[in-house]
Amino acid sequence: MGLPDVAEVWDWLSTIPDPEIPVISLVDLGIIRDVGWRGDTLVVTVTPTYSGCPATTVINLDIDAALRARGIKKLELKRQLSPAWTTGWLTETGRRKLEEFGIAPPQPAGGPSRCPRCHGENLERLSQFGSTPCKAQWRCRDCLEPFDYFKCI
């Protein structure tokens, strides 16, 4: 039996949801850095978002389970620290899905560009930290709703 094509493995990985923000996939999040074969072992290189993010362990388990379910027998998950993950690696699809879900996507300017609900631009920051390491809490002064902002790092 031949080994699956790398492009096919990328397709499989793009169906695995982020455990804490399930509207986006691990590929959308930009944390899968490389997929390749070393002999008959599939090597998937993953970079952590925040060094202490508790989702990291779950993400590795999810990748392991999903690929084994596709028939991968020999799998190695490599952690790559450098270059450090940046929100610039979020895919366009990922950014769009985040906003549809109610999380403002990261902006290089350091704050959300508009409210993910009403698209109002009159915003205020409540806290630099939110319900997960990757998010901050903001509020829209137009619709008065608080919302999560995916921090730019």
């Binding site: 952590p48 925040y50 060094s51 202490g52 993010c53 508790p54 930290f129 939110g130 390491p133």
Partner: peptide
């Protein structure tokens, strides 16, 4: 969050 980063 800060504690979590530090432990990471």
């Amino acid at each position: 969050n800060t504690a979590l980063d530090l432990i990471g």
